[in-house]
């Protein structure tokens, strides 16, 4: 049920995975929110053909 799953999010403390701008994670940390920053880079080093193949094979 979509209702219960989204509602659950509204009931729980946030625990965030941050992919991208690190400032967002820093600010959440300062507020005492549990957050983990992903050291992200484009999949397959930006090789779009390989990235496309990967998305079909799934990871």
């Amino acid at each position: 049920m979509s209702e219960s799953k989204v509602k659950k999010l509204l009931d729980e403390p946030l625990r965030v995975v941050n992919i991208g701008l690190e400032g967002f994670a820093t600010e959440l940390e300062q507020q005492g929110v549990k957050v983990i920053q992903v050291d992200w880079s484009p999949p397959a080093g930006g090789d779009t053909k390989l990235a496309n193949l990967l998305s079909k094979l799934g990871t």
Binding site: E12, V17, G20, A25, K34, I36, V38, S41
Partner: peptide
Amino acid sequence: PRTLRAAVKSMPEANLVLIS
């Protein structure tokens, strides 16, 4: 972590992914 997969592995209780 370098990937969402590894991040979730180390924080299995995560409930939101903020993407920028």
